[in-house]
Structure formats: structure tokens, C-alpha cells
């Protein structure tokens, strides 16, 4: 890769223009969604966004780095509780300064989300440092253990509502901050961050760790540091998803972050293809939409869901895209082959 060019003013202007266009685009679509869709469908669309963040974040550690975590629901819980709690505590101070309205809400929500991401990241670091010395199945089972311990801690914390869960001081629940706009702004942010890591120097080192850790170490790759970093970033993104989820639900409880949630995340990245960002995006959408469409099947739904997972693993273990990314050139190649 060529050395990064120094950015000129023009480059900066283009960046700002693109970002503004994207944000305006999301805002525009959000307005359309709010007017054009019934709330039930809106919820699914929000859930898709949250799933994308979860899947893309988890994919960084599970897919790209090949270090399997099956306890990410724990980090989602940390983010959810932290965001909800901070949001409730921050709101009075911010409304005192900025008054009520969309701007104040946005400030509170995003500040709280950042705290949530930070704390989830710290939790990720705390879990990652000791666990990432382990490999494969052992790492998986330790992350599962940590995920369960985190949930048990919330279950036994009175200030956060124990088993009843946390929904702020108002019985009507947490304020519904989670809108199409914020969810998808965060989707773009998370996808960009993960993408930039994946396609950077460190990203290639992460892939090297996945392919052969001992060989990577022999090439002087700081494997431990990189693995822990990837794990921390991944935990932080799960925290953001948790915060968005909390304010979509207007309340959270420890039961929302059971082992099954971690399995859901794994299914998302497996369907799309381990190691592919666009695959994770597709997987996240797929899971939200299918689980909703299958609701009419009642008790057969989860049986089919589990069966689907087994069949995918046997028939196409690399998922829809494998480690490839969805891009225009992919279709060109296919056309050329014909």
C-alpha cells in the first residue's frame, strides 16, 4: 500500500461534503420511514440497524481475527445499562443548559452512548487481557463464562433494578431516544471504524493471526496487543448496540442478555460469512427480518432456527460471502466468467 498522502484542503472539503451528504441522506430516509411505515415495521428496521452494529463488531474479533467469543451479550449488557443509567443522570443537567427538544435529547443520548461504549470497551479489555492467551474452544468457553458472570452481576445489583431490570426513574420507561437517524448514523460510524481497522496494516496482522497465530508471532506481529485491541473495539461496538437497544425498548433487564443473544449474534455473522463486513451487515438484517417473519410458526420457530444453523454449517460453513466483501467488482467477475 502506498504511503498515505497528506490531506489537502480539497480532500478535507470532499470528506466534509460526503459526510454531510450521508448524514442528510440518513435524516431524509429517516423522515420517510417515520411517515411511510407503520411502527411495527419501523421497529424491525431499527432492530436491523442494531443487529448490523452487533454483527459487524463481533465479526472483527470472531471473523477477522479468528478469536471466537460466544459471550458478547455481556458487553452488550454493559453498554445498555451504562447508556441507560448515564442518560437518566445526564438528562436534567443538559435540559437545564439546552432546554428540551431534539438537540438536547441528541446530546444526552450520544454522550450516554459514548459512555456505554467506553465502559463496554473497558469490560472487553478486562475480559480480553486474561482470556486472549487462550485459543479456540477454550477462549469461547471463557467468554461464555464472563458473559454469564456479567449478567449475574446485573441480576444482583439493586441500584440497577435486579431482575426487574432498569428503566430509569420514570415508570413509563427510558425516553425513546432511539430513532432511525441515530441508529443508522451509528451504523455508518461503526462500519467505517471496523472497515478502517480491517483494511489497515493492523487489520492484515489480525488476518495473519486468524490464519496462523504462531507463524504471525514468528513474523514479529504483536499478537497479544492486537488481539486485545480488536476484542476491546468489538466489545465497545456491542456496547453501542446495547445502548441503542435499551432506548428502543425503553427498559432493559438481565434476561435480555442471555447466552441466546450471543448465539443470535454468531448466527448473524455466520450467515453472512465469517470475516466479511458486508456479510455481517446482510446477516444482521437477515436475522431480524426472518425471526419476525417466522413468528407465525409459534413453537416451531426456534426448532427451525436451530436447524437452519446446523444445516448452514454443514452445507456452507463459510456463509453467504465467505471472507469476501460485497462490491461491484464481485458482480463484474461473475459476469466475466460467463
Amino acid at each position: 500500500m502506498a504511503a498515505p498522502d497528506r490531506l489537502t484542503t480539497k480532500d478535507w472539503l470532499i470528506r466534509v461534503a460526503i459526510s454531510t451528504a450521508v448524514v442528510a441522506g440518513i435524516w431524509g430516509i429517516g423522515q420517510g420511514v417515520q411517515v411511510g411505515l407503520i411502527e411495527y415495521v419501523q421497529r424491525i428496521v431499527l432492530l436491523c440497524g442494531i443487529n448490523i452494529i452487533l454483527a459487524v463488531g463481533l465479526n472483527l474479533i470472531n471473523g477477522t481475527t479468528g478469536q471466537f467469543s460466544i459471550g458478547h451479550a455481556g458487553f452488550m449488557a454493559v453498554g445498555a445499562y451504562a447508556t441507560a443509567f448515564c442518560g437518566v443522570k445526564l438528562a436534567p443537567a443538559v435540559t437545564a443548559a439546552l432546554g428540551t427538544g431534539a438537540i438536547a435529547d441528541g446530546v444526552v443520548f450520544n454522550a450516554a452512548l459514548l459512555v456505554g461504549a467506553l465502559l463496554a470497551g473497558v469490560a472487553g479489555l478486562a475480559v480480553g487481557v486474561p482470556s486472549l492467551r487462550l485459543k479456540g474452544d477454550y477462549l469461547a468457553i471463557v467468554t461464555l463464562g464472563f458473559g454469564e458472570i456479567i449478567r449475574l452481576l446485573f441480576n444482583n445489583t439493586k441500584a440497577l433494578g435486579s431482575a426487574t431490570g432498569y428503566f430509569g426513574d420514570n415508570p413509563a420507561g427510558l425516553p425513546p431516544y432511539t430513532s432511525f437517524f441515530w441508529v443508522y448514523v451509528w451504523v455508518v460510524v461503526v462500519v467505517l471504524i471496523v472497515r478502517n481497522i480491517t483494511f489497515s496494516q493492523s487489520g492484515r496482522s489480525l488476518i495473519a493471526i486468524r490464519e496462523d497465530e504462531i507463524a504471525a508471532e514468528a513474523m514479529a506481529t504483536p499478537t497479544t496487543r492486537l488481539k486485545v485491541t480488536a476484542f476491546t473495539v468489538s466489545a465497545a461496538t456491542a456496547g453501542i448496540a446495547g445502548g441503542l437497544f435499551a432506548h428502543m425498548q425503553s427498559g432493559i433487564r438481565p434476561e435480555d442478555f442471555k447466552f441466546e443473544k450471543s448465539i443470535d449474534m454468531i448466527v448473524m455473522i455466520i450467515i453472512g460469512g465469517l470475516g466479511s463486513i458486508s456479510g455481517a451487515v446482510i446477516g444482521g438484517i437477515f436475522l431480524a427480518v426472518t425471526l419476525e417473519l417466522m413468528r407465525d410458526l409459534q413453537e416451531y420457530r426456534l426448532v427451525l432456527y436451530a436447524l437452519l444453523l446446523v444445516v448452514i454449517m454443514i452445507v456452507r460453513p463459510e456463509g453467504l460471502l465467505g471472507t469476501r466483501e460485497l462490491s461491484p467488482s464481485m458482480f463484474k467477475k461473475k459476469a466475466g466468467a460467463k
Binding site: I263, I266, I270, Y305, A306, L307, L309, M313
Partner: peptide, 9 residues
């Protein structure tokens, strides 16, 4: 993952 799937099933 297959094992987890069979377990869920």
C-alpha cells in the same frame, strides 16, 4: 458452532 446448533435444536 455446529455443536451449539445441535444443542439448541
Amino acid at each position: 458452532i455446529t455443536a451449539i446448533g445441535v444443542s439448541l435444536l
